[in-house]
């Protein structure tokens, strides 16, 4: 009986929507911003599928409809970029310089650390886009023929970490300028970092949401350059 109920389009959509809504409800109810609906929903779905022994293919039957929206989600990222265009023109030198250095630091550190820890190449390629916003991270992961599941998890860990340590890190490094604060959060911790940046102030939030898009484009360009050179 379970077979006929789970091997449907409805099952994957219902499970995903139900758990995500449940997490949103719980976060609002408990007023705890650290509750991450994406991470918790994905974790619970994996637990349910493995414990009830529902084949992964049954889940993807419906989930593929949700996954198909990654394209449109990526396209509309142009909107926040467009809205913050004046800020970019005003501070182009510092903003582009800062973001470029951050993206380069991400590439270099992932490549070096993977060599140090003896991680294989497929893991290295999966971790390359860990600082980028999720839909673009997934696209980069796919174009590198990496594992998108690992990329997504690494992006969430990065976002949660970046958002929670930013304040302490800024104090230690004496980073005081609102543009530097927002830019660092957007470049390193994408949307989750931007949520934190908005709490810090208006300029911080605006710069952070601009940095998400610019850092993503910079990452895509760098990956393409590496591919053209035949390094990946």
């Amino acid at each position: 009986m379970t077979e006929t109920l789970t091997n449907t389009h409805l099952f994957g959509i219902l499970l995903t929507l139900g758990l995500y809504y449940g997490c949103l409800w719980l976060r609002k109810r408990l007023q705890k911003n650290y509750i991450n609906p994406l991470l918790i929903s994905a974790f619970l779905i994996i637990i349910i599928l493995t414990q009830v022994q529902i084949p992964y293919e049954h889940y993807t039957k419906g989930a593929n409809f949700i996954h198909a929206f990654l394209g449109p989600v990526t396209v509309v990222l142009a909107l926040p970029l467009y809205r913050q265009r004046k800020l970019l023109v005003q501070h182009k030198f510092s903003i582009l310089g800062g973001i470029f250095s951050g993206v380069a630091a991400s590439f270099i550190s992932v490549i070096v650390l993977c060599r140090v820890f003896h991680l294989n190449e497929i893991l290295e390629r999966s971790l390359i886009p860990h600082s980028v916003t999720t839909p673009i991270g997934i696209a980069v992961s796919n174009s590198l023929e990496a594992i998108e599941g690992i990329t997504v998890i690494s992006i969430i860990i990065t976002g949660l970490l970046g958002a929670s340590i930013a304040k302490i890190l800024y104090r230690i490094l004496r980073i005081t300028h609102p543009i530097a604060k927002g830019l660092t959060l957007g470049t390193s911790a994408h949307v989750l970092g931007t949520t934190k940046a908005i709490e810090m102030g208006e300029t911080e939030g605006a710069v952070s949401s601009l940095a998400i898009g610019v850092a993503a484009i910079t990452t895509v360009i760098m990956v393409t350059v590496l591919q053209v050179w035949g390094l990946y």
Partner: peptide, 22 residues
């Protein structure tokens, strides 16, 4: 789409269960 972005990433997150061996 922008306000509810994380919802659309859940299936990609779940896909880690079939690549856990890596």
């Amino acid at each position: 789409l922008l306000d509810n972005m994380p919802f659309f990433f859940i299936p990609a997150g779940v896909s880690v269960m079939v690549s856990y061996q890596f």
